[in-house]
Amino acid sequence: MGPPLHLVHIKILAADLLSLTVLQTSRPSFLRRGRTVTRAELVGIVVSRDRREKFLRFLIDDGTGCVPCVLWLNHQYLNANVSSELSASDPNAEMALKMSEEVCLGTLLRVRGKIVMYRGAIQIAVRDVVLEKDPNVEVLHWLQCVRLAKECYDLPPPSAPGAT
């Protein structure tokens, strides 16, 4: 039995993320081969960017597909309305703003966040963004995804003994 996947950011390719099984309950659940996943880590190129007042929406392309991502900025604006001094000292607002500046068309990023549904499609609610300067990171991520899928993620769930 592998580790519980719902407790970690699983390294995953876009094609695998976008093909997760969705269980429609009051809060959608996402399954990979019968095991619940809630968080993901992707590496890819920013191919679309749309900044609004409360959020930054962008697409990450890793060569297997494009994943919609959203970085919420609204806490920054809520705090700014209370006091400009308060927003300057809010680490979440400062961090979200700094991360949003890293998201530029054509840049290679590592994105981690929660898997969510929005208007019937899977997307990532971004927790953090890291600008990758080494182009080899993308290929290394692909290799890690394949290895982890084989050794950890795609093992049969504990409730299905003897499954292959």
Score class of each variant (00 low, 15 high):
1 M>W: 06
4 P>T: 06
5 L>Q: 08
8 V>E: 08
11 K>E: 04
13 L>E: 10
13 L>T: 09
14 A>L: 00
15 A>W: 05
17 L>F: 02
19 S>G: 05
19 S>R: 14
21 T>N: 10
22 V>L: 09
24 Q>L: 10
24 Q>H: 13
25 T>L: 15
27 R>K: 13
28 P>A: 12
30 F>G: 05
31 L>P: 02
32 R>M: 11
32 R>K: 10
36 T>D: 06
36 T>C: 05
39 R>S: 08
41 E>P: 01
41 E>S: 14
42 L>K: 01
44 G>T: 08
44 G>Y: 07
44 G>K: 03
45 I>E: 14
46 V>N: 04
52 R>F: 05
54 K>E: 12
54 K>M: 09
55 F>G: 02
55 F>L: 12
57 R>D: 13
57 R>L: 07
62 D>I: 12
63 G>Q: 08
64 T>A: 08
65 G>C: 08
65 G>S: 09
66 C>G: 05
66 C>R: 15
68 P>M: 11
70 V>G: 02
70 V>N: 07
71 L>S: 07
75 H>C: 00
76 Q>A: 14
79 N>V: 00
80 A>K: 11
80 A>P: 00
84 S>N: 10
84 S>Q: 14
86 L>W: 09
88 A>G: 08
92 N>H: 11
93 A>I: 01
94 E>A: 12
96 A>L: 02
96 A>D: 00
98 K>Q: 13
107 T>P: 01
108 L>T: 04
110 R>T: 07
111 V>P: 03
111 V>H: 02
111 V>M: 03
112 R>A: 06
113 G>I: 03
114 K>Y: 04
114 K>D: 12
114 K>I: 07
117 M>N: 07
117 M>H: 05
118 Y>T: 07
119 R>D: 11
122 I>T: 03
123 Q>S: 09
124 I>V: 15
125 A>W: 04
128 D>I: 02
131 L>I: 03
132 E>A: 06
136 N>R: 14
137 V>C: 14
140 L>P: 00
142 W>T: 07
145 C>T: 10
147 R>P: 01
149 A>H: 15
152 C>M: 13
153 Y>D: 09
153 Y>E: 10
154 D>Y: 10
156 P>C: 14
159 S>F: 14
160 A>H: 09
160 A>Y: 06
